[in-house]
Design a protein around this nucleic acid. Structure first.
Length: 475
RNA sequence: GUCCCCAUCGUCUAGCCUGGUCCAGGACGACGGCCUUUCACGCCGUUAACAGGGGUUCAAAUCCCCUUGGGGACGCCA
């Protein structure tokens, strides 16, 4: 039997980190076993489900490259299927109509809580033999004693007293099916053999198993992945600044970095930290999933992102860069006006920035001075005051003819050698010219290597910037 | 409140199932140093954990029990 896994998000919000991780694990498990990974959109709650959220989830999965087989299943389009199965349960006596109002049920729960018992519906309509009627719901007639157990793929043997579970609603008073019913019908119908989901679903699993048994269907394997927590160890939420997957893209993270990070959060393979997609597929196993919750650590994500930035082909990063450039200028310069975005030029800049940027946002900020026309170069005032004093200006002025005479800027070693020769002659230290020249070329005190920078800027641009800096000082 | 789950450096984790090779290993971070034209990269080093208490055993991070701490679930949400 070939394995079939699925990811079943509810489109009431964007795809968040926790969801992305369970999706990744389910995808990896399927691929590892040569099986199939499916996507199902759980939009039975029409009030809260939106098309925008559905689109966003699909977009995020695409960005992470977690492709599902075939087209997504939408629960909202399958109400007839669910209802026919509810009717079957009604016919076989495994379900019954209940006339209790939400308020009445709430009162029962309150009473139970007050008496120190588990709050639940008391089953008073179980044997009433009620039929359909306004305001009535269909409840599952569950066993009231005995134990339901299953072998959780990550937690191990798990058992729940049936008495702990109340008779869950299968069909609401408005005729719509509830979550547990729809999930079971769909997982069966879609041929799902392994359900890997978040820990917050453990309590649903025995209920669902009861439904499988009532239908006489094969029960799939279940695995519950521990939650992701915020720095305060509480379930990761908006409150912690928990971001959607796509916001990580906006922040300049590469999808493979997020995937690698997420994979290592709660899963491990010895001491290995860096995993290619192929390695992940080959090595993934639920046996290596941890069983305690883990805290999300942005620092480690940053480290991985920096790693993947260094590994990426310059052309790829150059193509991604413009998306981040609009925000990258100094305060106020929030557009791409006049920037040199030639792909070849960008690709020549990227290698100088790869070892320096932890995110594409940082890279864009560092790339900015390369792209702006000399006339609009932004100078750091303190840098100018500090490094373009008269003495420095004189040195730069003496250096200028040497750079004017240099024939080939693509050979940055030659530029360096020429500079060194000049310094030797005057018995000067490199430090004497380094920062003045840097400020002249970049407007800042921190940048990639001077001569590599000149090499990328090219002769015309480099000379223009040095001349402009000299003029700047004269003012 | 009831039920369920979890517990190794600040964080992610290896080791635990199949006790000894663990005065607990790796990684991120932090700190220090080296390299160096700046900023980074890189390299080297330091820091830091078996929650506590009882057992079992010649021997326990590893097995058992209790305590404590944390988390989750208890919807006509999913």
């Amino acid at each position: 039997m070939t394995i079939v896994t699925r990811f079943a998000p509810s489109p009431t919000g964007y795809l968040h980190i926790g969801g992305a991780r369970t999706a990744l694990f389910s995808w990896l498990l399927a691929k590892n076993q040569g099986g199939t990974f499916l996507l199902r959109v759980e939009d039975t709650d029409r009030e809260r489900s939106t098309q925008a959220a559905t689109d966003a989830i699909i977009e995020a999965m695409a960005w992470l490259d977690l492709a599902a087989e075939g087209t997504a299943v939408f629960q909202s389009q399958r109400f007839d299927l669910y209802n026919s199965h509810i009717d079957t349960l009604l016919e076989t006596g495994r379900a019954y109509w209940c006339q209790c109002t939400p308020d009445e049920v709430e009162a029962m729960r309150e009473k139970a809580r007050a008496e120190g018992r588990k709050p639940k519906y008391d089953g008073r309509c179980r044997e009433l033999g009620l039929g359909p009627g306004a305001g009535r719901v269909v409840r599952f007639k569950g066993p009231q004693d005995g134990v339901t157990n299953f072998l959780d793929m990550v937690k191990g043997p798990t058992a729940v007293q049936n008495a702990e579970m109340d008779d869950m609603i299968l069909r609401r008073s408005d005729g719509s099916p509830t979550y547990n019913l729809a999930v079971v019908v769909d997982d069966h119908d879609m041929g799902v053999t392994v359900v890997l989901r978040g820990d917050d679903h453990v309590a649903n699993t025995p209920r669902q198993i009861l439904l499988y048994q009532a239908f006489g269907w094969n029960v799939p394997n279940f695995g519950h992945v521990p939650m992701i927590l915020g720095p305060d160890k509480a379930k990761l939420s908006k409150r912690h600044g928990a971001l959607s997957v796509m916001e990580y893209r906006t922040l300049g993270y590469l999808p493979e970095a997020l995937v690698n990070y997420l994979a290592r959060l709660g899963w491990s393979h010895g001491d290995q930290e860096i995993f290619s997609r192929e390695e992940l597929v080959r090595l993934f196993s639920t046996g290596n999933l941890g069983n305690s919750p883990s805290v999300f650590d942005v620092k480690k994500l940053e480290w991985l992102n920096a790693h993947y930035i260094k590994e990426s082909a310059p052309g790829r990063l150059a193509a991604l860069l413009p998306e981040y450039l609009a925000q990258a200028g100094p305060a106020g310069a929030d557009n791409l006006d006049g920037l040199n975005l030639d792909p070849g030029y960008l690709a020549s800049i990227v290698p100088l920035l790869q070892p320096r940027a932890k995110t594409l946002v940082e890279m864009a900020a560092m790339a900015h001075f390369f792209l702006v026309p000399t006339a609009r170069l932004d100078y750091d005032e303190k840098a100018v005051a500090e490094h373009l004093k008269p003495g420095s200006r004189e040195l730069l002025a003496r250096l200028l003819p040497i750079y004017e005479a240099a024939p080939d800027y693509s050979d940055h070693k030659a530029l360096e050698a020429a500079t060194q020769a000049f310094l030797d002659e005057g018995n000067l230290k490199f430090k004497a010219v380094a920062q003045p020249l840097r400020v002249a070329l970049t407007g800042k005190t921190a940048s990639p290597g001077l001569f590599e920078t000149m090499g990328v800027l090219g002769k015309t641009e480099s000379l223009a910037r040095i001349r402009q800096a000299l003029a700047l000082v004269e003012e």
